[in-house]
């Protein structure tokens, strides 16, 4: 009864302001549209794709008949691991320098901030071009998983630097002061006190970059190449899962397999997000 009254009252108050009513409708409509599109996208791909996932989708070797995703998944794993091996230490160390050593208003910090923002805004195809010119041709790596990983390293660096910076800044100064008070040096304080406290935040950033790597296409086409077979070593060329899917969909011959690959990619993204969310939540309470 009370809610009825409320609704009625609301309705009456809007009668005098048709503009407000219109805006309210626009807001609600936009929200429904945004989340409706997401829901529809996920449902469409899952419903159409699930039936096409079978054992042959995961066959060990790629043939033109099964269009297996296993080599692509292995390539993606190798690229992800390699990129993280390069980018995680680099990114975390840069963030440590920015937060713990450089003064907050120093010129150097400002330059680095500008460059990381610039790097974050560069589209992946530019990274791909640069990777092709620098790592593939100038460094002589050829189309290889290594060249692809190095390219992606530069691409995810700003993300790791930013999230680590935030995580380090969130560690209260009392932690550092307490450690100094007990006679620990700066280095020991950073590695024993500050970093452990910041681990969940740093991990959340690293996991987000895993998501970016797994979905990357444009930066890898002309650095890691598009060979569909299992890689022999990090110097051999191989297509990632996203490139695999792009090729399948673009050739138009393997739509069913493309649907199946899309389901795998989507599932991966949702899992990555859930995990990063879980860590971030843990971090807030800690």
């Amino acid at each position: 009864m009370k809610t009825m009254m409320n609704v009625q009252q609301k309705f009456l108050s809007y009668k005098n302001c048709p503009g407000s009513a219109m805006l309210r409708i626009m807001v609600l409509l936009s929200a429904v549209l945004t989340f409706g599109v997401l829901l529809f996208l996920i449902l469409h791909i899952v419903v159409q794709g699930l039936p096409h996932i079978s054992l042959s989708t995961f066959a060990w070797n790629y043939t033109t008949e099964n269009a297996s995703v296993t080599p692509a998944i292995i390539n993606t794993l190798v690229i992800t691991l390699l990129s993280l091996c390069f980018a995680a230490p680099l990114g975390i160390f840069s963030a440590i320098y920015l937060v713990e050593y450089a003064g907050k208003k120093s010129r150097f910090v400002e330059i680095i901030r500008i460059t990381t923002v610039t790097l974050a805004g560069i589209p992946s195809i530019i990274y791909g071009l640069f990777g092709m010119l620098f790592f593939v041709v100038s460094c002589g790596l050829g189309f290889s998983l290594l060249a692809g990983s190095l390219t992606l390293t530069i691409m995810i660096l700003p993300l790791i630097i930013r999230t680590t910076e935030e995580a380090l800044l969130a560690v209260p100064d009392i932690f550092r002061e307490g450690s100094y008070g007990l006679g620990a040096g700066k280095l020991r304080t950073i590695f024993r006190i500050v970093l452990p406290a910041a681990v969940p935040g740093i991990l959340a950033g690293i996991i987000l970059s895993v998501g970016r790597i797994a979905g990357e296409t444009a930066a890898l086409v002309y650095t890691a190449g598009t060979v569909a077979q299992l890689p022999g070593s990090v110097m051999s060329s191989g297509r990632s899962l996203a490139i695999h899917m792009f090729t399948l969909a673009n050739e138009g011959l393997y739509m069913e397999q493309a649907y199946a690959t899309a389901v795998i990619l989507l599932l991966f993204v949702v899992l990555i997000n859930a995990f990063s969310y879980y860590l971030a939540k843990k971090f807030v309470y800690a």
């Binding site: 469409h44 990357e216 996203a242 969909a249 989507l266 997000n273």
Partner: peptide
């Protein structure tokens, strides 16, 4: 919205 941001561009393209 985070998932929307994380979906790879190939999947959008396919959609």
């Amino acid at each position: 919205t985070d998932i929307l941001a994380g979906i790879p561009s190939v999947v959008y393209g396919f959609f």
